[in-house]
Amino acid sequence: MNALPDVDRERAVELVQQAYADGRLDPAELERRLERALTATSARDLEPVVADLPDEVVRLTTTGGRVTRAGDWQVPRRLIVDSEYGGARLDLSRAHVPYGRVDIELRLTYGGAVIILPAGASANTDGVRTAWGRVACKAPGRPRPDTLHVRVTGELTYGRLTVRAARR
């Protein structure tokens, strides 16, 4: 089992504190969640602490260009990629992913997408619809303990989706 990185714990504490500041948590709930966040030993322990708090959503929109993310980038809990004529290439293999589960929604009319996962990660593409394209997921479909699970949803009308692990 991998040790929980301090950045993950700090992010959970920030989300809990923000929820309290926004009036979504009472003092007793704040205390309970902070204790759980500070004593968590894995991403699985940490996930219930923030699961019902507002998701961090990032929306990437383009009309005809390609959306590309690679290298050392911060992956949000929820990512929406919206493009009429462009595609997407999302490489999570060296990215910072502070969550145990990430949701990616694709809205691509004429473009395709490639999602590259870190070693050991799993993905579920059951929520992806396509009219003339195809979906190929070469990663395990069921979540595994203490590893990243990516849930991909959305619509690729004329494009195809490939989800695979990073090449060594």
Rank of each mutant, 00 (worst) to 15 (best):
M1L: 05
A3F: 00
R9D: 11
A12V: 09
L15R: 12
V16M: 06
V16N: 07
Q17H: 01
Q18A: 07
A19I: 05
A19Y: 08
P27E: 11
P27C: 09
E29Y: 00
E29C: 02
R33Q: 06
L34V: 10
A37G: 01
A40N: 08
S42A: 09
A43Q: 11
R44P: 00
D45K: 11
D45G: 09
L46I: 05
V49R: 12
V50G: 08
A51E: 14
D52E: 15
L53V: 03
P54Y: 01
P54I: 01
D55V: 08
E56V: 05
V58M: 13
R59M: 05
R59I: 09
G64Y: 07
R66M: 14
R66A: 08
T68I: 13
T68V: 15
R69G: 06
R69N: 12
Q74K: 10
V75L: 13
P76W: 15
P76V: 14
R77T: 06
L79Y: 13
I80D: 12
E84D: 04
E84A: 06
R89K: 08
L92E: 05
L92Q: 05
R94A: 03
H96G: 04
H96D: 10
V97S: 11
V97W: 07
L108Q: 03
L108M: 04
L108I: 07
G111L: 02
G111K: 05
G112D: 03
A113V: 01
A113W: 01
V114G: 01
I115E: 02
I115R: 02
L117Y: 00
D126G: 08
V128C: 05
V128T: 04
R129V: 03
W132R: 09
A136G: 11
A136E: 14
R142P: 00
P143M: 15
T147C: 13
L148E: 13
L148T: 14
T153Q: 15
L156F: 08
Y158C: 02
L161N: 10
R164D: 00
A165N: 06
R168V: 02
